[in-house]
Structures are given as structure tokens and as C-alpha cells.
């Protein structure tokens, strides 16, 4: 029986997020929040592992006031319980501080065989939390996983690296990060969505996991100064002509005169 902790982060729905054309800043207010794509695949992985044997899937998230709603989706997909660390004093902390909090939380949950998450969350793209957690817990890390199976007290996985696929075996407990190729997350049935509301959810602040929010915050050392969409510096010439042939001829002329075809 495997006890699996899945790390999830809720982020703004990136397909709905717009950029303010004046300020070039992303507009995140009022945009629906969802579980970050790769984290959702990590959850699907955990649920499949549970289904192929016996076990328990525990969703863990450090988030804000909207996280509870986002995590309902995790419970509907098949997580058995959810824990949320929601502490205003921790807003905006970096990956270092986040992993300290998550470490304390998984230790409080305790008795786990596997910790699993996405390679990175798509808002920060930092890809640090999983390896950091492995270091803090002194556990082996298996990153870039695209296939995984659990055996007796061990796991076997295929890692997707640039030049090779690496097949690895490691004893549990271990920390795993999955990539996009690992699976397609399921869409929960209406019945499971209803059931999700009755599953246990607990909310903790820093103190509840034995940390001082001030200390954690003080250890955070990377800060985001600003976030902006890049300036688009293009000619934006829309070719208009009476016939397709004319338009194509004008485009061909433009491409040739730009000199980009020369070798």
C-alpha cells in the first residue's frame, strides 16, 4: 500500500490570461485559477499508481485563498485528501522558502512512500521545488519522468533527457518530477465532482507545520521586481491585393528584398 503525496500549485489559467496592451503587464485579477498543467499530470500519475495497486493519494499545496477551489478538482480526479498551506505572511516567497514549507508539511503528513510533482509550474517555470525538496529531505530524486511503475518498496521510471532515455530504479521513499509526456489527466465525472466536496481538506498556516512565517520569509532571497510582456517590434505590414496571385507576388518580393534567403 503506497502513500503518495502530490504537490500541486494553482495558477492563473494561462489560456485566459491577457496582457494589458498599455502597460504590457499580465492581467491576472479575475482570471480563473487552475492546477498547473504538469502538476495535474503528476496527480494523474499518482492516481494511476494507486489504481494499479492499493494506496492513498494526498494532495498538498502551498497557496492562497483560491487554492481550496482549485484543489476540489484534484479531489474530484481521485485524490483522497487535500492539505493546503495558506499563510498570508508567506506570499511572494521564492523556491527556497517554498520548499522549506513543503518539507515541514510532508513531514507533518508523514509516513509517505512517494512525493511527486510536475517538473515545473508554468507560472514561475523555475523547476526547483522537487530537487530542493529531495535535498532537504535527503531523499533520492528522479526528475523528468515520462513513465513510472511501483514495485515492492521501489520504483522504476523512464527519464526523458535531451540525448537519452534513462531507465532507473530506486528504493522508496523517493521524490519524483514528471514531464508532459507522462499521461493525459482524466476529466472527473459529475459524480466524483459531487463526492469531492465531502473529502477531507485541511488548511494550515506556517505555525501549524512548525515554522515561523517570519523566519521562512527572511530566508527567501530571490524577489520578482516586475513582470512584463516583451515588446513586439515588428513591421506589421498586412499585404492587401485584389487577387491571391498579386498578394503572393508582393509577399515573395518582400521576403526576397529582406535578404533573409541568402546563404
Amino acid at each position: 500500500m503506497a502513500r503518495i503525496i502530490v504537490l500541486l500549485k494553482d495558477i492563473v489559467d494561462l489560456t485566459e490570461m491577457k496582457v494589458d496592451p498599455e502597460t504590457r503587464q499580465p492581467v491576472t485579477e479575475g482570471v480563473k485559477r487552475r492546477i498547473s498543467e504538469l502538476d495535474k499530470r503528476a496527480l494523474e500519475t499518482a492516481i494511476q499508481l494507486k489504481e494499479s495497486g492499493e494506496g492513498e493519494v494526498i494532495a498538498l499545496s502551498m497557496g492562497g485563498s483560491g487554492t481550496r477551489v482549485a484543489l476540489l478538482a484534484a479531489l474530484a480526479m481521485g485524490a483522497d485528501a487535500a492539505y493546503i498551506i495558506n499563510d498570508e505572511a508567506l506570499a511572494g516567497v521564492d523556491a527556497l522558502a517554498t520548499s522549506k514549507v513543503l518539507k515541514a508539511a510532508v513531514e507533518k503528513i508523514g509516513d509517505y512512500d512517494l512525493i511527486i510533482g510536475g517538473e515545473m509550474t508554468l507560472d514561475s517555470l523555475s523547476a526547483q521545488v522537487i530537487p530542493r525538496l529531495a535535498e532537504l529531505l535527503d531523499l533520492p530524486q528522479v526528475t523528468y519522468v515520462k513513465e513510472i511503475e511501483l514495485g515492492e518498496g521501489a520504483l522504476r521510471a523512464v527519464r526523458d533527457l535531451e540525448d537519452v532515455d534513462e531507465v532507473v530504479e530506486v528504493d522508496l521513499p523517493a521524490v519524483v518530477a514528471v514531464v508532459r509526456e507522462v499521461n493525459e489527466p482524466r476529466i472527473p465525472s459529475l459524480m466524483n465532482i459531487m463526492k469531492a466536496k465531502r473529502k477531507p481538506t485541511e488548511e494550515w498556516d506556517a505555525e501549524a507545520v512548525g515554522l515561523s512565517a517570519e523566519e521562512v520569509k527572511a530566508s527567501s532571497s530571490v524577489e520578482i521586481l516586475n513582470v512584463m510582456a516583451p515588446k513586439v517590434d515588428r513591421k506589421r505590414i498586412v499585404i492587401k491585393a485584389d487577387t491571391v496571385e498579386d498578394a503572393a507576388a508582393q509577399l515573395a518580393e518582400a521576403i526576397v528584398s529582406e535578404g533573409v534567403l541568402e546563404r
Partner: peptide, 28 residues
């Protein structure tokens, strides 16, 4: 895509592409 391009044609690729291929062949 038109907002982030240098040159663009608003049109059906199924007619524009053959025409573009022809025009480029002539030019090149």
C-alpha cells in the same frame, strides 16, 4: 499572429500557399 508579424496575408492558406510557391519559383 498578424500583430506579431512583419508581413502577413489575410487569406486561405490553401490558395495563398500555391500562389506563393509559384511566385517564389519565378523570383528565385
Amino acid at each position: 499572429i498578424h500583430e506579431i508579424s512583419d508581413y502577413s496575408i489575410v487569406g486561405d492558406l490553401y490558395t495563398v500557399l500555391p500562389a506563393l510557391i509559384k511566385a517564389l519559383k519565378e523570383k528565385l
